[in-house]
Design a protein around this nucleic acid. Structure first.
Lengths: 210, 210
DNA sequence: GAAACCTGTTTCCTATAGTGAACACGCCGC
DNA sequence: GCGGCGTGTTCACTATAGGAAACAGGTTTC
């Protein structure tokens, strides 16, 4: 398995997205949107080109719309897909959620090159993914390919010293306390250069639709 | 203290929503993902529960998959929907920006209770705001009111020990290495409890329109 | 080199999504 | 009350997605 998929998998798990497919009350959500705009089924029908009856069935979960139908929906309603798929958005904002992770109590995800400790992994639906990493790699050649994933990444060296290899820059030496922010779809890879394996704290943004 | 500027908001408004529906070569994208993982149609079939023939047709744009089929896909392949729908991903986006901040070289923003050092502040348009903070406050009463700002916050104690007061929870003692993730529109405030002023690393999400 | 595999594609057939028309209900104005 | 509207739902039919099996091409095996 490649370094990329490892990291991706780790991030996906960390992101708190349930591995199963969510119930996804798409119909319910559609009705919600429609009523919020004070639209009738006929209005939506004209906007989307879908038959009134079809819309009714979708809202009542009697049929599972075709993907082309979904496209017509998002085009006609002027919304984007993530919006259609995020029912719990409404007041998930002022929840006052929190998730504590004591030192060393994160979820471990070892790979040949990195040893990740995912922090705050109790919390689903978060916009950032924090994790602490022990950098086991000692040479750039240990990576079969660039690590890359959508979004942005912030990184601070907690202990030791590392060399940050990136696709478009010369390798960069980072010591304890140094930090860097970069676009993480640019290939990147870390190796420890201190005697002890270096420890870094990373925070990635969660992938969002383009 | 949020350091949130209006740039993002302005740009977002200016950009508007895309007026046309994307071509959305879903089949192409699926094949891309499949080949990237070196999977055969049969592999994907077993993972998703969809027939080999169906997958073939989807990849060749001969049919438009049902939404339930799409759900099986994202569940079986372990990807999330935005990932499946971002065709222009291939390598167009890679900006490759980066912003290095050496230890102690951030931008200082002192307040009576906190002494912030903003990290990576060269970079505009980023989705996260990282900063290191020396917690000068010693008693909760030193705060005239709750600190709160839209979005989410991740926090790790780097040195010393703090007490985290939050609007909806009992105060929480955090020691070096402990971390916490919380909705930052919930009121919060930090005080140092160790002999030396505690130092914490925080990362906030940038406000995004609902 | 043929038989036994694999790959991806294509061919039926059936299950179901999508449509237009009929339906039931509530809301007017007269 | 009545008929006209408009709402959302249900029907009957057609179009199409999904599945099992057959197919065509390539590679491996003896």
């Amino acid at each position: 398995m490649t370094a990329t998929t490892d990291q991706d998998a780790a991030l996906r798990i960390a992101s708190g997205r349930k591995p199963f497919v969510e119930p996804l009350r798409l119909g319910e959500r559609l009705r919600e949107i429609r009523l919020a705009h004070q639209w009738t089924l006929e209005d939506v029908s004209q906007r989307t080109g879908l038959a009134r009856s079809t819309l009714s069935k979708i809202e009542n979960d009697q049929i599972s719309p075709t993907f082309t139908a979904v496209q017509k929906l998002i085009a006609g309603l002027g919304i984007d897909l993530p919006q259609l798929l995020s029912p719990p958005r409404q007041q998930a904002r002022t929840n006052g959620r929190r998730d504590l992770t004591r030192r060393g109590q994160g979820e471990l995800h070892p790979t040949p090159t990195y040893e990740h400790e995912l922090l705050s992994c109790e919390l689903a639906q978060k916009r950032m993914i924090p994790f602490k990493t022990i950098v086991r790699a000692r040479r750039f050649e240990e990576f079969s390919e660039w690590v890359r994933h959508d979004g942005e990444e912030f990184l601070m060296v907690l202990e030791g010293e590392i060399l940050l290899y990136t696709e478009f820059y010369e390798p960069l030496r980072l010591e304890s306390g140094d930090s860097i922010y970069f676009d993480s779809d640019m290939g990147h890879a870390l190796v420890s250069t201190s005697r002890e394996d270096a420890v870094v704290l990373s925070v990635c943004t969660r992938g969002e639709a383009a």
